[in-house]
Write a protein that binds this DNA or RNA. Structure first.
Length: 550
RNA sequence: GUCCACGUAGCUCAGCUGGAUAGAGCAUGCGCCUUCUAAGCGCACGGUCAGGGGUUCGACUCCCUUCGUGGACGCCA
């Protein structure tokens, strides 16, 4: 919601008070931009919403309101009733254009807003097991999580980016065993990998690193098989994590915090968490296992916390993980999980609710599957390695900017067909280049332009293309706040496409540089600067570069 | 079988807490470069919003149901 909309809303509330002695909630008054600009710049449906309560025809209510609204808001040029009872506003052009100076003043900060009210929010994403390369699903989650946290930070939330490392449990043991076997094979020893171990090339590659760094130091277990395996587990985690961080870094995704599952065991947090569940009387024993009564809180089955062999299920340390997040002062937790963890959501939410953290303390967004498509056919495996396609291969193939854009431009709750051919195209078909080209074009004009002179009132910007661009720039901060609150970075992509479109359209009908018309030229140049700043800030929100030339 | 998502133009998708004639891009067809980047702009064509009920001033949006697609239903993680 921008300044103009806020002022409109305020005037409407005052008009309702003075005309009908009505006090309405802030979000009762909805201001929107009509799809058809001939209806006006903004509109509201309050009259229709009040028809029942006031027992009056909505058009009659609307008529009564328009008179007062026109008198009380100096920025409103006209205000009339249309359709079933819409009130349409036309705002003075000078008011709409005044956004230019705001943008020029705030520069990189334009668009930032405090709609988050400094709410402490912890976003956990990617959280892949350190047992192999990051693949496409992780890439989607990584790009999405990164953009969400950028949006949250720009909207005044106090946001932490966290990666939960599953470095305990049987999968890690399998990694250790697989790595050890691969290592021994490098010395011609006929070691076999566990059947359900990690047979991929990536573990073999890591084994080579171990050999390079440690030579034959570990070929002989020296009578301590368990000690050697423990070392390979640790070394496997270290090398896998290193590789993961390198790939994420290359992808432009960075975390503030890495939480180790093993660390939660070591510090006693897992025990403490479990004890808390037991102390609250939420467990029972059956078949030699300890169960959590999650069905009392909306889960469809009770869940095992401690298996009959005494070890814990995945849920137990994860409960401790989430308790720990709340203990660190975060009141809102957001997790991005892969579609395969879909069924895990109710039990985690039930567990936290049972422990008294409320129903809405945790929100989980599910990242749906990604299919790579080329020439209409699905690419299942990497042509090079024969394995699942990794995040690095994808970036090498189509570039980081295009990859990030394609992942973020579509809602996460639907399956994504990633068209690799389109992403690689360096033409207008490709939305990434369309937007970047707009920025390069802006920069090109600015390079040739005289210095911008300050403008007090933009009275010459009256072309419909100029106004469309201006109105869209006005929407920027409100869009960011909305995208942050709904955690939908794809809205930023929609915004970018529209902004680029309005600019290209403006470019074709309004010539900026004109010696014969210095005043108009200067005002258009100011609009151009404002557009460039807005576009660059928007691209930055999704982590995409804004090239000055193309 | 049970639970959870999703189903919008030939293709890929938007559609803002229910609002005006359902929108883009691609594809197809036609125009526009002696002036700031044609990686661009403009125009046209294209729809049973999966089907059927319901709620109300009004439904792509909310509820029920049928069909279709995907996922989850471990003392795996």
């Amino acid at each position: 919601m921008n300044l103009i909309e806020l002022e409109l809303k305020d005037s409407i509330k005052k008009a309702l008070k003075s005309t009908y002695d009505l006090d309405v909630e802030d979000n009762f008054v909805v201001i929107e931009m009509p799809k058809d600009p001939s209806f006006g710049d903004y509109s509201t449906n309050v009259a229709m919403r009040l028809a029942k309560e006031l027992h009056q025809n909505p058009r009659v209510i609307a008529e009564a309101l328009t008179k007062i609204l026109l008198e009380n808001n100096a920025d409103v040029e006209s205000c009339d009733v249309a359709g079933a009872g819409f009130i349409n506003f036309r705002i003075k052009k000078s008011k709409i254009a005044s956004i230019i100076n705001t943008v020029l003043e705030q520069k990189d900060d334009y668009g930032k807003n405090d709609s988050g009210h400094n709410l402490a929010i912890l976003v956990e994403y990617v959280s892949a097991n350190p047992t192999g390369d990051l693949h496409l699903g992780h890439a989607r989650g990584a790009a999405w999580g990164d953009c969400i946290t950028r949006l949250l930070n720009a909207s005044g939330y106090n946001c932490l980016r966290e990666f939960y490392v599953n470095d305990a449990g049987v999968q890690i043991t399998k990694l250790g065993e697989s790595l050890l076997a691969r290592y021994l094979q490098l010395f011609g020893i006929d070691a076999t990998l566990p059947e359900d171990g990690y047979h991929g090339q990536d573990v073999a590659d890591i084994a080579k690193i171990v050999k390079d760094e440690h030579g034959d130091e570990w070929v002989d277990a020296k009578g301590d098989e368990a000690g050697r395996l423990a070392w390979f587990r640790k070394e496997g985690i270290r090398l896998e994590l290193e590789k993961m961080k390198r790939d994420l870094d290359y992808f432009g995704v960075h975390f503030d915090s890495w939480i180790s599952e093993q660390g939660l065991y070591d510090s006693g947090e897992v025990e403490k968490g479990l004890q808390k569940v037991i102390d609250m009387g939420l467990t029972y024993e059956e078949d030699g296992a300890l169960w959590f009564k999650t069905t009392d809180y909306g889960d469809d089955k009770d869940r095992v916390l401690k298996k009959h062999d005494g070890t814990y299920t995945y849920l137990t340390p994860d409960i401790a993980n989430h308790i720990d997040k709340f203990n660190r002062g975060y009141t809102k937790l957001v997790n991005l999980w892969g579609a395969d963890h879909h069924g895990y959501v109710p039990r985690m939410k039930a567990a936290l609710e049972a422990l008294g953290y409320g129903k809405d303390g945790l929100e989980v967004d599910i990242i749906q599957m990604v299919r790579l498509v080329e020439d209409g056919k699905e690419l299942k495996m990497s042509k090079r390695s024969g394995n699942a396609i990794t995040i690095r291969e994808l970036c090498d193939e189509v570039g980081v900017d295009a990859s990030r854009y394609f992942f973020v431009s579509r809602a996460v709750d639907t399956h994504l067909d990633f068209d690799i051919g389109l992403a690689k195209k360096r033409s207008s078909d490709n939305p990434v280049y369309y937007a970047q080209y707009a920025h390069a074009r802006m920069c090109s004009i600015i390079r040739q332009a005289p210095a911008l002179k300050p403008v007090a009132a933009y009275d010459l910007l009256t072309d419909e293309k100029e106004l469309a661009l201006l109105k869209h720039i006005n929407e920027f901060a409100g869009m960011i706040g909305d995208a942050a609150a709904t955690r939908m970075p794809n809205k930023v992509c929609n915004y970018i496409q529209k902004l680029a479109q309005y600019f290209h359209s403006f470019y074709n009908s309004c010539h900026v540089l004109d010696d014969k018309n210095p005043e108009l030229s200067n005002q258009r140049l100011a609009l151009l600067f404002a557009s460039k700043i807005t576009l660059k800030n928007a691209l930055n929100l999704i982590g995409i570069s804004a090239p000055e030339t193309m």
